[in-house]
Design a protein around this nucleic acid. Structure first.
Lengths: 341, 341
DNA sequence: CTGTTAGCGCGTTCAT
DNA sequence: ATGAACGCGCTAACAG
């Protein structure tokens, strides 16, 4: 209910369009467009007038509108879906992607799906509705089928999976050599004489957890050890959980003499458990993923280090090679790990 | 140079448009649009035919085109500019923003400017060219003037600054109470009897570093201590630097008896220095920013904890309140810290 | 309730 | 070298 005496004064001024610029410069919109795109065949004085008008009006190019008309219809943006953008492992992947994208003036959307398949799908669709040129995805553990993406790939969207493999879809993928990394670490423990080595991993339906368990088993076999199912534990990734589970493990009647923790936060939990029970010098520990404070630990904990930044860079490179016209068969890259203190 | 015998077969199929859907469903484009937006006044059978056609063609809504025609012209996306998306402090801010944005189905662009004013500006303009509805910015230390954003704010873009204050622009801002946090920590050291307390901070032109130094000085004054300029050191944030500088500090003829390190990575460096020189039990240490592994340290290091996630959430809330129509004077929020082990 | 028309901001023909 | 006209995909306004 508004009185006619109080007209609705917009407190926001309308954005200048290319026509406004054209009018002020006394040229046509086409000429402005040409100047904006650095075309050569514009008279210098006209170009100057256009540039001044752009400045004067605070004109900002609208890439969405531009993209609509353009032939290739590239939006110069990509979408990144991670488990959690605030987890250092994933944010390093994110940064790797960003750096490669930035070199091509491509912007990056990012979203966390918190291991939720439904959220993952929602993010994919939201990105696609913004017409991203490509998608980099760390699949949620629960996603049963990525096949629906086939049609979008057909339509020209470049899709690359990182850290975990897609299901029911043949697409470019970059993962770490999880099995080999785990095998190396567990072999190290076995070589030191341990025969009862526990495996502490996260959700058993997680690709990386499965692969690391596989590596653990390979190492046992390799050293002539028999797996004791009671020593293989799967849990959530929260450090608090891991700590409680590890304490229970250590307080068993017949505890392990060594622990292989298959993930970052789990190593933290195991560390805490060893500290709380005062067993840090009795029970050996080795882990997957780097620890930022490894040097301050006594005794030191050897870890399998992956390179998440390289994971991200490599994924982005695969993505852009597709956008550059590569149409070959999907590439499956496996990046090595480094084991040590 | 292409032979006519080899026509350029597009290996990508054209995306279905709303007209394609309309044709297949035997309705008009408007009807499809109405169904897509959940309008009530469409006959159920028509709606069903539209839905099937959408499925059959793998149609994906184009929000850019939609946004172009729509009255309010909101793109349902925002841009976030941080120093480094892979730094845990900033990625926690990022996540806070994302969570608030997601509740409103708003997507998030993110970019790192690595403390480079030029990159910051480039990112801002790239986001604006994509017509983001709002911008959350952690200003680069070197940015001299954010005034250029005034015009875009006038045009309706919501702009919020986080962690550091803008220059020459009056806008919504959320920062941590850096001075008070530092004062608390340094007071703690002074109360323990220390009279020679060193300050290890990063770039002196960084807002947070300045504020923390201010807090350090307030604490000294409060405890009747006189500042010794030789004990106030500014450095880069890389832990390696901090370690070297701290070692040099400890090896002086007249070293401090306590160190206040004003940032995350610097605390890491100081810790390393104390460890390398074997002085960890002789020289007291307190730091700004949380340490993920505090519980494993001996002796424990008390720290000033900020809440970057809350910083992000709060910033996003200010942003969306603007988009919701708030037009009052810019708000300057200061979030508290928590000091302890 | 449904279809038709026009136009959002822009780039691309095609004339000139 | 420059401008006029058209259309990208979509939706607001109107007509029926």
């Amino acid at each position: 209910v508004k009185s006619p005496a109080e007209p609705d004064l917009p407190r926001t001024t309308r954005r200048a369009t290319i026509r406004d610029v054209a009018r002020l410069a006394g040229v046509s919109a086409s000429t402005v467009s040409r100047v904006l795109h650095g075309a050569e065949q514009v008279a210098p004085d006209l170009a100057d007038r256009v540039t001044s008008a752009v400045q004067a009006l605070g004109y900002r190019h609208n890439v969405a509108a531009s993209n609509l008309r353009r032939a290739d219809g590239s939006s110069a943006s990509i979408g990144v879906i991670l488990e959690d953008i605030s987890n250092p492992f994933f944010s390093a992947i994110h940064r790797g992607i960003e750096d490669v994208a930035r070199d091509r003036s491509v912007l990056t959307f990012a979203g966390s799906c918190d291991e939720d398949a439904h959220l993952e799908r929602e993010l994919v669709e939201a990105f696609l509705a913004r017409r991203v040129d490509g998608l980099v995805i760390v699949p949620a553990a629960g996603t049963r089928d990525h096949g629906y993406l086939g049609r979008d790939m057909q339509a020209g969207v470049a899709v690359v999976f990182v850290d975990r493999v897609p299901r029911f879809l043949d697409a470019d993928t970059v993962v770490t050599d999880n099995a080999r990394g785990a095998r190396t670490a567990v072999s190290h423990l076995a070589a030191a004489g341990h025969r009862r080595i526990a495996f502490l991993g996260d959700h058993e339906h997680l690709f990386t957890a499965q692969e690391r368990l596989r590596g653990y088993r390979e190492a046992l076999t390799q050293h002539g050890l028999v797996e004791d199912p009671a020593l293989v534990l799967h849990l959530g990734v929260r450090a608090a959980d891991a700590s409680a589970v590890a304490i229970a493990l250590l307080e068993r009647a017949f505890p392990p003499t060594a622990i292989f923790s298959a993930q970052n936060l789990i190593t933290l939990g195991a560390l805490s458990a060893l500290q709380q029970t005062g067993r840090q010098h009795d029970i050996a520990l080795a882990g997957f993923d780097e620890l930022p404070f490894a040097e301050f630990l006594a005794p030191p904990v050897p870890v399998v280090a992956q390179d998440p930044y390289a994971l991200g860079r490599t994924a982005a490179e695969l993505l852009f090679s597709r956008l550059d016209g590569y149409t070959g068969t999907p590439r499956k890259l496996v990046l090595p790990t480094r084991f040590g203190l």
